[in-house]
Write a protein that binds this DNA or RNA. Structure first.
Lengths: 274, 274
DNA sequence: ATGAGTGATTCCGATGAATGAAACACAGAG
DNA sequence: CTCTGTGTTTCATTCATCGGAATCACTCAT
């Protein structure tokens, strides 16, 4: 490691750089893309380099490649933003827009009836990823953003996804649970475990949280065959939250989406396609 | 080439491969991602290699890297699909979900009122890219898919985007126009040019097409400041198409979105943010 | 003007990551 | 059994990648 072996006299300017470590180009490229978040949608080269931990000259070269393929776009002021090309290919993700496209019309109807936030989320590893959110103009503000991640141990959709996740995932979540993270009524890991069992038994989850704002939520699982692939929920301010009304609506909608998914699957599986 | 120059005795197996050409890794990686389309959402390694024109072993290595960062996911049967990671970062594209998030509530209302397809599209080079589509369960089928591309010279949104595009883009489209591509009433390049002028003057576009199904459409521009950044439209079956009703609704909604965009811009521009 | 400061860009030698033909393993079909 | 088609591993070769330093571009305070 020590470059002392430049031997006598640093005649050679030691120009050549050494790739920090066996770090594939793809990793670094996506590290660049990972530098963007909801609070930093436009980044200068310097920010890009700093936030991704990549030397400036390398960051520039990579960013140019990404612009070339359309993954990034360059603004007039020189800053970079995420490009449309990503949206284009991302829309082909079966668990993302694929799921979304069949769920959307039903979510529309649910939204039409409730006029409250309607959420659709899937599980990715130990987090939930918000696929779609419908909100009214005059709706109460919520923190959850489409494309954003949220914890499994709180939020209705999270609890549903966790309840039907592989045991390993559940254990991980229960083990890592720290009191205070969960919604109201879940103080300890034991509470969480009990809650998950309850969710499985009733096939839906109620959630109450008072932390940022007082919000109530009902969530239900969306299935493709036997497997739970997503969770649907309605989130509404506690004031005037009609559990009795939203609960059945959410569960019915979730089942409708599940049925449609299964039909689509059957239709796609049978005949030779392509 | 003839490999006769193996000279005397093929002792050396000639293993080493030569990088086809000065082709950055990023380009190849996105060539892999580009192998997916709406008819091929799951691809085997062989398909992936063939469709992207990359040797199998290289495709495998790249695909693994992409799986590692979450851009691809691997199904149980070994096939690859687009992963959630892409959706996550793609949701940060200002011209994509950024625009979408402010437009959505208004689109919801428009959809609520009309119960017809509501489309939001932006221009990317010489094509339009569909950012969002709201459709009813019982709606007439349309070919346009979220994340998909559609020509500028047909479809209401396309005409609006083209009408307000830089002159170079317009000339390119008019030059490349071939009779028969456009909607009903546009037969020649001259017709197209005249239509674009009319769109600019009236600040909206009507479209009639009978090709796949008889569809009518009204589209209006969405502006951020002076610049047209997107187009909004309602698409409905010709039967019972109430132009008089949809037209104003679409235009009013487009203006509402524009106003909101401008306010957001002002809000974001003024105070120092991060 | 002058200089200081910031950020984007170019240069370029050294080097190791990327490359792909070939070999291998396995599966199903004929 | 052979044969065709998979996915996978190996490995000698080499060219694309790497990043420190120099350069350019631009702003702002003096």
């Amino acid at each position: 490691m020590n470059e002392t072996q430049s031997s006598d006299g640093g005649l050679a300017p030691r120009r050549g750089g050494k790739p920090a470590e066996g770090q594939p180009v793809i990793d670094r490229a996506f590290a660049l893309l990972g530098a963007f978040d909801s609070d930093h949608r436009a980044l200068s080269l310097a920010e890009l380099a700093q936030r991704s931990g990549i030397p400036r000259s390398s960051a520039l070269r990579l960013a140019r490649s990404l612009v070339h393929v359309g993954a990034l776009e360059r603004l007039d002021d020189g800053r970079y933003v995420v490009g449309l090309r990503l949206l284009e290919t991302a829309s082909l993700a079966p668990r993302g827009h694929g799921l979304r496209s069949v769920a959307m019309p039903y979510m529309e109807d649910l939204f039409h009836v409730t006029r409250q936030h309607v959420l659709l989320a899937v599980r990715d590893q130990h987090e939930a990823l918000l696929i779609e959110r419908l909100s009214a103009l005059d709706a109460s503000p919520v923190a959850y953003r489409v494309g954003g991640r949220l914890p499994l141990t709180s939020t209705g959709v999270g609890l549903v996804l966790l309840a039907f996740a592989p045991v390993a995932v559940q254990d991980h979540a229960i083990g890592a649970f720290e009191p205070g993270q969960g919604p109201d009524g879940i103080g300890t890991a034991a509470d969480l475990r009990r809650m998950l069992a309850e969710v499985r038994r009733g096939d839906h989850a109620f959630g109450r949280q008072s932390h940022p704002w007082p919000l109530n939520t009902v969530a239900a699982p969306v299935r493709d065959g036997q497997e739970v692939v997503a969770a649907l929920s309605v989130v509404a301010p506690s004031t005037g939250f009609a559990e009795a009304g939203y609960g059945p609506a959410v569960r019915a909608t979730a089942r409708a989406i599940s049925r449609e998914l299964e039909e689509d699957g059957r239709r796609a599986a049978r005949p030779g396609h392509a």
